[in-house]
Structure formats: structure tokens, C-alpha cells
Design a protein around this nucleic acid. Sequence first.
DNA 1: CAGAACATGCACTGACGAGTGCAGTAGTGC
DNA 2: GCACTACTGCACTCGTCAGTGCATGTTCTG
Lengths: 194, 194
Amino acid sequence: MSEDPRVGRSRAIILAAAHEHFVRHGYLGANVDTIAAEAGVSKRTVYNIYGDKESLFRAVLERAFEISERFTRELADGMGGDLEDIAVRLVRAVLGPRVLPLRRMLIGEAGRFPELAREYYERAPGLVMRSLAAHLPAQPGLRIDDPAIAAEHFAFLVLGAPLDRGLFDPDVPADPVARALAGVAAFRRAYEDR
Amino acid sequence: MSEDPRVGRSRAIILAAAHEHFVRHGYLGANVDTIAAEAGVSKRTVYNIYGDKESLFRAVLERAFEISERFTRELADGMGGDLEDIAVRLVRAVLGPRVLPLRRMLIGEAGRFPELAREYYERAPGLVMRSLAAHLPAQPGLRIDDPAIAAEHFAFLVLGAPLDRGLFDPDVPADPVARALAGVAAFRRAYEDR
DNA sequence: CAGAACATGCACTGACGAGTGCAGTAGTGC
DNA sequence: GCACTACTGCACTCGTCAGTGCATGTTCTG
């Protein structure tokens, strides 16, 4: 009655290869034959498990969203520290190689799969915003009237510029951490209680 | 010796239709037959003028970049006013229907055409940043040590959040102008001279 | 008005890629 | 060891789409 282990194994391998490939080439640019080859699996197996290209794509993203969400929650758990600490963790996460390429791809596919792009936004960046809004008021020495706005200001002071730049250019921009700290400093000046 | 007016006319019509279509569907999703039909021109004419799909794509973007650049310069000319004025103009421009969809498409194609994405960044968002950096120090009552950083802070306080949201979701976010003004207020607090 | 240059319509080629069918093989549960 | 189920390899269909060739019609230019 329990599932044949071969299926689970194939599912995992295919999902990993497909994620890599879809993120790199986008939905239309992706090639199921190539995905199968990169997964070291026959094309027939891909189709036996996932049915068609679009279902595979959705399965890849469902898994990617879960991971992003879990990752974001871990990030939120570390929001007890000081602002500089939060900023550095945020920057490292969002500008890292697991997030930026996924963002690029989803934005590019937003016309074809609008509900997926929206869902991602809710489950990752949106969640970051909500977490920040929940934690910022507990920071000492700050005066925060509107937590949602303050969260946006914090996030975009810290990583707005390199994020936007990074969407257009895969080459990492110069030392995002220094900018993040400059962003935190500006945020403190804007929101200090005086 | 001067050019046949038919060619110029066709060029313009095709470019407009192709722009619309490429921005909507991306490079791979675009269809030359459809572009020709939407332009009200035969497919053969498209190929006679532009040679192939990629050349047409590049021609579309070359024109789009010129327009963006010109538009940005006009925006920069209005940077003598106060911050609130600059912010509102900036928001209206960047979050408008001529910019956001183009950005989405270019980000999605950044893997396939990296040099085009980079070029766009330089000629539009990068130019905005440089213009801001050049004008902000002239604002009264502010103390600006690093104009480049201050420009980034201004820009992303003003439109960071709705811009990022807008990349994932075509539906206009609520009231970006109010947010822009809240961003300006935060910027003033962070950079006021005291 | 004559000839050149461009536009049209349409049929066509060729490549590529999604998805299928099937016969054979190998791993799995009992 | 047996029956079952999944995986493989490969050949195949079918649709789509970029790009071409050509004969005919239309619009410039001189």
C-alpha cells in the first residue's frame, strides 16, 4: 500500500533539475527533454509523474514557495536582534543566488502566470513586510506610528537599490552589506524617538 | 536618393505593434505572424525591413531606450522643485503603464539578453539615480554627505514598495502617491540639517 | 506615363519541442 | 522466486513558428 520508493526518488530528482532549469530559462525557454537529461531520468518518467510541462512547472513553484516561506519565517524568528543584524540577514537572504533568479523568472512570467507571481509575493516578500511590521515597534529608541509603512521604509532603505539593480544585472553589485548599514542609519535618523 | 516613405511608415507601424506585443508576451512568447497582423502589414514586410525576429526585438528596445532616456531627462529637468513635487512626478512616471510592463519584460529576458537589461538600467533607472544625486544637494535644509546613497534612499523610500509589488502584480497598488509623500517625509527626517 | 521599389498573399520548408506508444528491463513487495 | 510496478530507450506524431520564394498588385519617383 505504501508508495514505491522509486517514485519519490524520481520526483525529488526531477523537481530539483526542473527548478534549476526553469529558473534559468523561464517557462517557454525550458525544455522537458533537457530537464530529463539533467535529472538523469528518461523523459517518459517525467511525463509519467508530472503529466505535462505546466504541471511540472507548478509543482516546482509550489515547492519553491514552501521553501521561501519557511526560510522567511526563520528570518522572522531572528527579528529580536538589533536593526543592523536584521538588515544584514535580510540582505544576505534576498540578494542571494537562491532568491534573485527566482524573482527574475517569476516577474518575467507574471504575464503568463499572474496568480503564481501574486502567490509568491504574498508568501515571501509580503511575509517579510508583515514580519518587519510586527517586530519594528519593539525596537528601542524608535517612534513608529504606522508599522506597515515603517517596515517598507526599512526594507527598501536596506536593500532597495541593490535589489532593483540585481534584477537587471546578475553580477553582484558592490558590497550590499555596506549599503544595508547606511540604510539602517538613515532609517534610525528618520524614525528615532525625540 | 531619399528613402521611400513607405518604408518609414511601415517601420514605425511595425515597431509600435512589436513593442506592444513583445512587452506583453516576452521574446519567446512573441509571434512574428501576430505582430505583422496587429501592425496591419504582411509578414514579408516585417522580414524585409527587420531581417529576423531578434533584430526586430533589438530595434524595438533601442527605440524604447531612447524614449525612456529622453523621458528621464525631462524628469530631471523638473528637479529644481521641492521634494514632494519630484516624488510625485517620479512615482507617476515609474509606476505608469509604459514603464512597469517594460521592466517586467526586460527582467524576464535578462538571462537571454543580459546586455539589453544592463543597458536599460543604465539609461533609465541609473540615470534617474545620477540626476537625483546631482540635484538633492541643492535642496534647502538638508545635509547630504553622500549624494549617491541619498539618491537611492530617496528613490526607494518614495517608490520602492509599490514598484516591487507592481513587478509581481499588474494591478495597481493602493494609492502610491500617499506612500510617496510618506517616503518624502521619512527622507526629510533622515536627512534634515540640524 | 514608365520603370523601379516596395507591399501583399500564400504556399512552402525546416527546425524544434511537447507529448505518446510500446517493448524490454530492472527494482520492489510479499 | 513471483507478480507487479516503475523506469528506459527510441521511434513517432503533431502542432507551432521562424524564415523564404514568388507572382501579382500598388505606390513612389523622375
